[in-house]
Amino acid sequence: MKKGYQVALLLAFGALFAAFAFNPPKTSGDWASWVQAWGSIAAICAAIWIAYDQHAKVREQQASARHDEVRNFLFGIREELHINWVVYMQTVGDAVQAVKDNAAVDVTWPVPENPFKVYASTVGLIGRVPDDLIRKQIVATYVVAGGLMLTWKMHNTMRAARDAEAELVEEMDGTRPNGTWVVLQRDLTRYSQQLRKHQNEAEAMIGIAVDLIDTYLKKNPASSV
């Protein structure tokens, strides 16, 4: 109950007690008046308590709703990161890891246009996450993952440019390496190192984000209200 109401009720009861003490009832009419006065005070107290109790329950329900909203947001982010990475590794990530350091990643991956639908549609809720570390990690993880998408687009472009050139050039006395192809192959090999680096960074960031979210969800179970 709010302190203002408590003070007001105490003053009302004090005044009523003082009046009762100095003017005790003497007749049945006096008693009826006093009973009515006490009843009125009791009714006021009950009304105030009911209103406060209802307000407290509404606030509790709102807090529980916000709590569950944050949980649902984090769970959605967790699943999007985890599932996307599993699919990515199965599709092309394992192939990238298998390539030796001095070789080019000789595969093209069609980069999805909108791979982070959950994050894009719910990012406005990130400010409600009470854990600063989780908020920063989520943002940083999506930035790194987005950077990996851009790296793949550049890699695809470089590979397409190399493939547009013939590896060998026909001459009257036979064939010789195509100088342009050689340069493009060299550049693709170097850039493949960058691609692997970005992939490793994304994998590490996603792993950290998923672990942090799992820990938070375990410590903050769904509301029972």
Rank of each mutant, 00 (worst) to 15 (best):
E79D: 15
I41T: 08
E113Q: 14
N72W: 10
A21P: 03
V105F: 14
L148W: 05
A37T: 06
A63N: 13
R176P: 05
D68Y: 00
I77W: 08
A202Y: 00
A42F: 06
Q194F: 11
K117F: 09
E167A: 14
K57G: 04
R135I: 03
M154Y: 13
D214H: 03
V118M: 07
P25V: 02
T122V: 06
K57S: 10
P177D: 02
W181Y: 15
N114C: 03
E69H: 14
T141P: 00
W85N: 12
N200Y: 11
A15L: 01
A202H: 03
A160K: 15
V7F: 05
A18W: 08
L150C: 10
K136L: 09
A145I: 01
A47L: 10
K219A: 15
A98K: 11
W31G: 06
A104I: 02
A37M: 02
A63H: 12
T108P: 04
D131H: 09
E80Y: 07
A98Y: 05
V96N: 11
G174C: 02
A37H: 03
T157G: 13
G93P: 03
L148V: 05
L81G: 09
G39H: 00
V129F: 07
V87I: 14
F13I: 07
A63G: 08
G179Y: 09
K57W: 07
T189G: 04
E60N: 15
W109H: 12
Y119F: 14
G14P: 03
E80H: 08
W152R: 11
I44P: 04
E79W: 11
L10T: 07
A95S: 12
A46Y: 06
F20Y: 07
V96M: 13
E170M: 09
F17H: 02
K153S: 11
M1Q: 07
Y88G: 05
H82C: 08
F17V: 06
A209K: 05
Q193I: 04
N178F: 00
Q54F: 08
V86I: 12
L10K: 12
S40N: 10
M1A: 00
E170K: 09
T175G: 07
K100G: 12
V87P: 07
L195V: 04
T215E: 13
I208A: 13
A204D: 10
A209W: 00
L148G: 09
V129T: 09
G14D: 01
A140F: 13
D94T: 10
K100V: 01
L125A: 10
V123F: 15
Q193G: 15
V210F: 03
D101M: 06
K57N: 10
E80I: 00
P110N: 10
G127V: 06
A95W: 07
I134A: 07
A8Y: 01
E165P: 07
Q62K: 14
R59D: 08
A204W: 02
G4N: 09
D101V: 05
G146K: 08
W181D: 01
D163T: 09
N23P: 01
L188A: 14
A56N: 15
A43T: 07
H67A: 09
V123M: 14
F116N: 13
V70H: 10
I126C: 10
N102K: 12
G207T: 01
E60W: 12
G14W: 01
A222D: 04
G39N: 01
W109T: 01
C45G: 14
A95M: 08
Q97S: 11
L195K: 05
E201K: 13
A120I: 00
V7P: 00
A104L: 03
L125P: 06
